[in-house]
Write a protein that binds this DNA or RNA. Structure first.
Lengths: 264, 264
DNA sequence: TACCGCTTGTGAACGCGTGCACAAAGTCAG
DNA sequence: CTGACTTTGTGCACGCGTTCACAAGCGGTA
């Protein structure tokens, strides 16, 4: 039973000659080597990808402030990670720094954008125009970097046709048609739990390959579809766990706490 | 590093089988051993905690459908993980299953709730009543499991005093006072980026130890404060990365990998 | 009571990500 | 041109988390 696995689900059909050392041998530090860059993207760890997005935001802010170059030390501090990790992350996408100097801000932004695929626009469809969906549709943060919300859907007949955030709401039955027409590549599910799976199926049917799911449901999707979920309840419960753990530690050690290790 | 942590040597001496551990020594699989349960919580991997929250939701749904027991196989399928991982996760919190039978639903719910600290209520404060904050304040999902939103804040004078989702909005200057009064244990930041750090500082000042941050900013907090961030832009960019990777794979393998809409 | 099949719990191996420490490589001053 | 200083890029080791595989344990059955 292949449920949904964001894991190493054999990508594509075959990649037989790729025993790859997982590490990059950096065959050629040549710039503008597109095929190599593409190849390299496959080796970027998932966790690093998320951090690259953060670096990108920080870099953009720095650029606006007129910064031309940054050292790994500065950038890592601003991004909240240690410098070694930052350099390692950047090394996954190539060698664009200058030893003794640092990285050129514009170059780094350009390269990260390329790796993240931000050079093309990704149409986003939001399904479920409730409180959250409404917020997402109006969210100014989405378009911030090339993610135009180009379609909205809901089941409620009263909402259909009403413009939200400048876009008319369609009925979810039109998901396949509208998404295909507008070449939606990312679907956002903000519906109540019971409707999530159905909506998901329609998005998949429409050819959407990436889904961002806000509904507290485990979606079943084909292997070729990527799902990321944002579960507020889970986040709160994880925090709750920490609150409890802290309280216990305090009670147990009388407030004494040694970084990481606790005497028992 | 001075601390080398007696990996296994510790108790050694006359223990032939050598439990090895450092992980769980599980001295006594006795139930109702509260101190031991508390101690154990500290050993639960972060990733497992998040999954436990998911299991909890699935279990609740099963309970409502009248299920009395579940096997690791059933539960794992419903939660979207493999059964081995599920059993390992559950083993972190104790041994509450019956071999040859499975787990009793009610018992498991109870134990997970205890470990996650859901036996006590956690007051939540939402700061920033914009689109997102508004949605969060009205969000019916929060209280779902003991997370009452008990305070709202914003800078906008026009919003102060206005009730949103049944609760009056306070000015952010009142964060310290109100949060202390209402014993807020979790703060949710849904403000624009520039205001996030300031708001965060006030929450910390008010004694809030856990923060859920929706603002695309890296918050600086004292060590004793736990922060979890939900960054929509990052999520989208990670998905974008996958879209790009897929397209590349398709191009590389000759356009195989199809679903109807693969560009080249 | 003895056997059999089923499911849990976990020891152990594996793999990935993280952090350290250093060589390589470039800049700048004299 | 040389030497000293700075910062990158990465080999390597460590530790955590995931996965496998199986012994232990329990219920049902003869």
């Amino acid at each position: 039973m292949a449920a949904q696995r964001g894991q190493r689900g054999g990508v594509g059909g075959d990649t037989p000659p790729a025993p790859t050392a997982a590490e990059i041998t950096t065959p050629i530090p040549r710039v503008a080597d597109v095929p190599a860059a593409r190849e390299r993207a496959r080796a970027v760890p998932e966790a690093a990808v998320a951090r690259l997005a953060v670096y990108l935001r920080v870099l953009s802010a720095m650029q606006e402030q007129g910064a031309v170059t940054v050292s790994s030390e500065e950038l890592s501090a601003a991004a909240g990670v240690n410098s070694a990790k930052l350099r390692k992350d950047l090394s996954y996408i190539g060698s664009y720094g200058t030893r003794g100097v640092g990285y050129e801000v514009t170059v780094l932004i350009e390269e990260i954008e390329r790796i993240l695929g931000l050079t093309r626009k990704h149409s986003v469809a939001v399904v479920g125009i409730g409180n959250l969906g409404h917020a997402l549709a109006n969210y100014g943060g989405f378009p911030g970097r090339g993610f135009p919300v180009s379609a909205l859907f809901d089941v409620d007949p009263d909402l259909v046709g009403v413009p939200v955030g400048g876009i008319a709401v369609h009925h979810i039955d039109d998901i396949p048609r509208v998404c295909s027409e507008r070449e939606v590549s990312i679907g956002v599910i903000a519906t109540p739990p019971p409707a999530a799976q159905t909506v998901c199926d329609r998005l998949v049917e429409a050819g959407v390959q990436c889904i961002l799911n806000f509904a507290p449901v485990v979606l079943q999707v084909p292997d070729h579809v990527e799902v990321r979920k944002v579960d507020l309840a889970v986040e709160l419960q994880v925090l709750s766990f920490h609150v409890a753990r802290r309280a216990d530690d305090a009670a147990a050690t009388g407030g004494r706490q040694v970084n990481g290790m606790v005497v028992s």
